[in-house]
Design a binder for these strands. Structure first.
Ligand SMILES: [Mn+2]
Ligand SMILES: [Mn+2]
Ligand SMILES: [Zn+2]
Ligand SMILES: [Zn+2]
Lengths: 156, 156
DNA sequence: TTTTTAATGAGAATGAGTCTCAATAAGGAA
DNA sequence: TTCCTTATTGAGACTCATTCTCATTAAAAA
């Protein structure tokens, strides 16, 4: 957990620098994100913490996730099903997602070609590109082979 | 209004074929979409119709928009601000959008290059690509030049 | 410790979209 | 035209993720 420890220290510094307080809830939420390589939704994080007997409320999870996004520790993503997902941004460079409409499986991809075209297209239309949303929806191999049951993964 | 009339006839046929009824509400909503080249949100359509003294409810606007999407007359799009937009799909081929974060301006684009890469990427990951979401967010020229006031366009 | 004030938690509020169900109105039959 | 069946509508209740409120709690500076 070397690198996670560094991130924890970094977060504490960021808090102090902004004269925000280091609370047990904030640290627990941070660690929950750091120790997961998945795309987590708020209620999922909330439940995990409660299961570990961490005293925290949904409101605090939402607030802390927003804070973590602001300081650049977390990426907030919208896959169009009405619930935001959060992922550790510190160790992963920018990427986009392919999402299985049946089982909810999420695969990450990055395509320099596409990134380049986005920049060019924006410029061509006089826009200063600040960010983008790009997700591909379809059926993963297992779902096409009927090896899965329709789950609550994504109904978007 | 030649082409719009054709579309109206087409819609009536589609309704009959599905033994659905041709109602004044459905026709009014269809025309509202046909006579607009913008990306409209439900409540916007609802208000326009009421202003024209069309007797209709929000529920019916939502229901009819869904119906129009199902028969392929309308494209439902999610620009990530919590409200769906609808646009006339009949005359426009597939395209994606660039959205100004300040004034809400929406510019359309299509890039065969990107479309091709999406297909390849999906295949590479074993996915059957069914649809995609792709939007670029930034500042349009006028907003960069300070010629606009921050509006309710998009706060995503 | 004491003090100051940021942070938290419980639950109310929000808001887009959906659902319910009694009332209404297409449209086929006669 | 009138009648009859049944799809459609409208008002408002409901959903559900997220935000907000505000009294209570607890960092951390003094
Ligand atoms: Mn990811
Ligand atoms: Mn468009
Ligand atoms: Zn799948
Ligand atoms: Zn603009």
């Amino acid at each position: 957990m070397k690198i996670a420890d560094e991130h924890i220290t970094l977060f504490k510094s960021a808090l102090k620098q902004a004269s925000l307080r280091i609370t047990s809830q904030r640290m627990a939420i941070l660690e929950e994100i750091l120790h997961s390589d998945q795309h987590r939704e708020c209620d999922d994080i909330y439940s995990s913490l409660r299961a570990k007997h961490v005293s925290v409320s949904r409101a605090t999870v939402y607030r802390t996730l927003d804070l973590l996004e602001q300081v650049g520790f977390v990426r907030k993503m919208d896959i169009g099903d009405g619930r935001f997902r959060y992922e550790n941004k510190l160790k992963q460079p920018h990427h986009d997602h392919i999402i299985c409409l049946q089982c909810g499986k999420i695969v990450e991809f990055i395509d320099p070609h596409i990134e380049q075209r986005q920049a060019t297209i924006s410029k061509d239309h006089g826009f200063e590109l600040l960010r983008h949303n790009h997700q591909l929806f379809g059926l993963c191999e297992r779902c096409r082979d009927g090896e899965t049951v329709p789950s609550k993964g994504t109904d978007a």
